[in-house]
């Protein structure tokens, strides 16, 4: 009975992942194109929301600079639980091509917020993004919610 409740809750969470439209740089365009007609993200139940208050997935797409890092943290804090973060692209993973010589790029968004799935690529193809979202869905399906275990 309890197992079924977990299954039901996880299934409903993974099937309607509303993502925050947080596109900083080039990966943002691949995100937009993934959400458009050819690689449709809507079939996963994922619609974009403009405000973090209504989103449960934050797709960090693009380079995060030091000036922006504080805003990323604030947006993450504004999202209600349960929330997930996907780091899309090399810049969000580790700083990307700006790792070596740039003075104002945060070397990876995981220095600012906790990340669930990393998607490599510069920029990752929309298929890679969809693969990343499906992996996140698998992670969500494994979560135990009912007996107070960490969500």
């Amino acid at each position: 009975m309890v197992g079924n409740a977990d299954l039901f809750v996880n299934w409903s969470r993974k099937s309607s992942l509303w993502y925050l439209l947080f596109a900083t740089a080039c990966c943002g365009i691949e995100l937009m194109q993934a959400g458009a007609s050819r690689y449709d993200l809507d079939r996963f139940g994922a619609v974009f929301r403009a405000t973090p208050r209504q989103a449960d997935l934050m797709l960090v797409a693009g380079t995060i600079t030091h000036k922006m890092a504080e805003r990323v943290k604030r947006l993450y804090d504004q999202m209600p639980e349960p929330k997930y973060v996907i780091s899309m692209g090399s810049c969000a993973n580790t700083g990307g091509p700006f790792y070596k010589d740039s003075y104002c790029v945060v070397k990876g968004v995981d220095l600012v917020i906790p990340v669930d799935v990393y998607i490599p690529g510069c920029p990752p193809r929309p298929e890679a993004l969809i693969d990343g979202i499906m992996r996140l869905q698998k992670i969500i399906m494994k979560k135990k919610n009912v007996y107070g275990a960490k969500a």
Partner: peptide
Amino acid sequence: PDFYHGIKV
């Protein structure tokens, strides 16, 4: 610089 607001540069 080495750090800016606690994040490594």
